[in-house]
Amino acid sequence: MRISEGIPLGGLSFATSPHIATDVPLRSSLVLHPGEPSELIVQVKNLVQHNLRLRLRVEGFPTEWCQLGTESRSLSPGTQMDAVLYFQVPATFFEDQEALRPGNKEYLELNFRCRIVVHIDPDTEQEQVQDAEFGLYIRPYTAYMDFLPVLYREVDFIGRFMKIFEEAYQPVIDSFNVMWANLDPLTAPRALLPFLAHWVAWPVDSIWNLHTSRRLIRRAVELYRWRGTRKGLRLYLHLYTGLPLDEHLPNEAEKHISITEPFGKGFVLREAYLGEAVLGGGQPYHFMIRLRPDRPNSIDELLVRRIIDQEKPAFCTYELFIENLYVSPLSTTPNQTL
């Protein structure tokens, strides 16, 4: 809770009573900021030589704003207790158009003259009622008061006057503070994505969903740098499929995105045996791609081939295998299919 700096009005009047005394600060007005909790403490003391049963209530403002808490409902002779009023004004108080409805009021009420009422020995013929008045003032909080000398912070009008400038300039300042988010494809508004794509010469294609488009635009320069290489092709497939890069695995065949080349020794004298000899070193400029998704039918093969054709060197050929792992109804071990 924040201590209010500017109190519009002050003063509190108490009804005199030989039975009970109420002690509150001299400045008994409370400034409430919408959306922030505040509290007012009232001390009640028994001045007579017998027990008193008490019931407290408050009035003069919307009851849903306040909760009343007391230590007990009775006071022994010479003892005192604290009654705490917990206030919470809705955060949308100034934006709530229901408060300005012409059927009720044509203006928004900001100042409330309230009372706390103490019923002594309630539900009896000797019941007595004592009350004390206090003021509640609804004011918007402005951080611009921190830039002023303490002398000006004590004036309520200055706070409301500074709120006008805060409402006018603060949205611009907030937009400037988060400008970085508008330039990051992962957080930029959807309407800015074509502009950001134009910056990096990335074609906007309707085949990509929004999440994938953001990732591709953000990594476009890196994809250009590694185009035509195994690393660039694996990165592109990773951004589309979401499969891990598995850079920690040394064996290429164990990766979720495996790109291998069928290199062999070919025909070597003194090492070739009948039935096992291979003439030549395999198909030149040829590679194989194996994708191992965790969910079957989660990858569009035509789109994957389009990516490969775009990223590979024009003279290279390839073979594509998409392996789906599934569990057979008759077995608990996963099987591999092509």
Rank of each mutant, 00 (worst) to 15 (best):
R2M: 04
R2F: 09
E5L: 10
E5S: 11
G6I: 00
F14E: 03
T16M: 05
D23T: 11
L26P: 00
S29I: 00
L30S: 00
L32G: 00
H33K: 02
L47H: 10
L47S: 03
H50I: 03
L52R: 02
E59K: 12
G60K: 01
W65N: 04
T70Y: 01
S72Y: 01
R73H: 13
Q80S: 15
A83K: 02
Q88P: 00
P102L: 11
K105S: 13
E106Y: 05
L108A: 03
E109A: 04
F112R: 08
R113P: 04
H119G: 13
P122F: 14
T124K: 13
E125K: 14
Q128M: 13
Q128G: 08
V129T: 15
G135T: 09
Y137S: 09
F147P: 00
V150K: 09
V150N: 06
R153M: 05
I158Y: 07
I158E: 03
G159K: 03
G159D: 08
G159P: 10
R160Y: 02
F161S: 09
M162F: 14
F165A: 08
Q170V: 05
V172A: 13
I173S: 12
D174H: 03
S175I: 01
F176Q: 12
L186T: 06
T187K: 08
R190D: 15
L192Q: 14
P194I: 07
A197N: 08
H198I: 02
W199I: 06
S206F: 02
W208M: 07
H211Y: 06
T212S: 09
R214D: 09
E222Y: 01
G232N: 04
L233M: 14
R234K: 06
L237E: 12
T241S: 15
G242L: 11
P244D: 10
D246Q: 05
E247C: 07
N251F: 08
N251D: 14
A253W: 08
E261L: 01
P262Q: 04
K265P: 02
F267H: 04
V268L: 06
A272D: 02
L274Y: 04
V278H: 04
G282S: 07
Q283D: 11
L291K: 07
R295D: 09
I299W: 14
E301V: 15
L302P: 01
L302F: 11
R305H: 12
R305W: 12
R305P: 09
R306K: 11
Q310K: 14
Q310V: 04
P313Q: 14
P313T: 05
Y318E: 15
E319L: 13
L320D: 10
I322N: 09
S328D: 15
